[in-house]
Computed example of a mutant assay.
Amino acid sequence: MVSPSFSTKLVFFACFVLFTFSHKLVTGESDKVELNLYYESLCPGCQSFIVDELVKVFDSDLDTITDVKLVPFGYAKVSNNLTVICQHGEEECKLNALEACVINTLPNPKSQYKFIRCVENNTDNWESSCLKGYGNEKAINDCYNSDLSKKLILGYAKQTSSLKPKHEFVPWVTINSKPLYTKLDDLVGQVCKAYKGKTPLPIDCSSAALSERKMSNVEFSYVDEIISH
């Protein structure tokens, strides 16, 4: 026969486990690596990083341990009357706004990334090559042609300006809120190193897979300047 005290302890433990699990769900806590990319459209370094490097997360099993957040603002500025001025001109502002709407509209991070990768890989013809095929075309257009796109960009401006430490160039990548600085050419290795979850590491984190990966040069764009690493 189970003693009353043991039964009480068992019920308490079960409640504690349930509370902890529920709290994680409510607060959004996760074992996943938080990877944030702060960038701007039409920036050559950002384009090559999105097209050639970030794809390594989404085209592998790394996306099972990674939460990717894209922040399209970069070195744009907001004037006193809330006008947004972009480093690469009005076209960059338009594409930043478009990509902000894509992030806001498409629910799946992989879909968001694929759309944005398509745009950054073909900025001259994105309307014909990227706008269709991802769903929610009307919702993206409605967002882009409304005040919502500007509100989203102003939100990204606040996020970017609140970075600690401040971003020194773009693409600027943080993993679990810590900047990678010049380690962007080892993105996969850095994600694997940062993962502290209990489930086994993805295959792409094996020493054999990491040793076979080719390091690529990443361009860093400063204000009105591009520097290769």
Rank of each mutant, 00 (worst) to 15 (best):
C15N: 01
S111D: 14
Y222C: 06
L37M: 14
K138E: 03
C118A: 03
K69P: 01
S146A: 00
P4L: 05
N121I: 07
G133Q: 09
C101R: 01
S111C: 04
I226P: 00
C205Y: 14
Q112S: 04
T199S: 15
N122C: 11
T66I: 14
Y222M: 10
S146P: 01
L62H: 13
F73M: 02
S30K: 08
I226L: 02
A100F: 00
N80E: 10
K110A: 13
E168I: 12
H229W: 12
S22R: 07
S149Q: 07
Y75W: 15
G135I: 08
F115D: 03
F13T: 11
P72C: 03
V191Q: 09
N136H: 04
A14V: 11
W172D: 04
N121H: 09
E168S: 14
K77Y: 02
I153Q: 08
D147M: 00
T160E: 05
V170S: 10
S162M: 02
I85P: 06
S128W: 07
D224V: 12
S221H: 07
I227R: 15
G135S: 11
V173W: 13
S60Y: 14
P200N: 12
L98T: 05
P165G: 08
V102I: 13
A14N: 02
L54D: 10
T8E: 13
L131I: 12
K9N: 07
W172T: 06
V223F: 14
L10C: 06
R117I: 06
T174C: 07
V84L: 02
K150C: 00
L154H: 01
Y222E: 13
E99H: 08
V102R: 07
E34V: 06
L37T: 05
V188G: 12
T8W: 09
E34N: 14
F6T: 04
L163T: 10
L180H: 08
E127A: 14
L98M: 00
K193V: 10
Y39F: 15
K198V: 15
K9C: 11
D61Q: 14
E90H: 08
V11L: 10
V26F: 11
I153K: 01
S5P: 03
H88F: 06
D67H: 13
L54M: 14
D224C: 08
G155I: 01
V173D: 07
K138L: 01
S129W: 02
M215S: 06
N108F: 01
C192P: 15
P200C: 13
P202L: 14
T160F: 02
N145L: 05
S129F: 10
F58S: 10
S30M: 07
S216V: 10
D52G: 08
F16M: 12
H88Q: 03
V218M: 02
K132P: 01
T105C: 01
F220R: 15
P165L: 06
E92T: 05
I203K: 15
F58E: 10
H229R: 08
I226F: 03
G189R: 10
S30C: 12
G133P: 08
I153Y: 00
S221K: 07
K150A: 02
L131N: 11
S5C: 06
C86I: 00
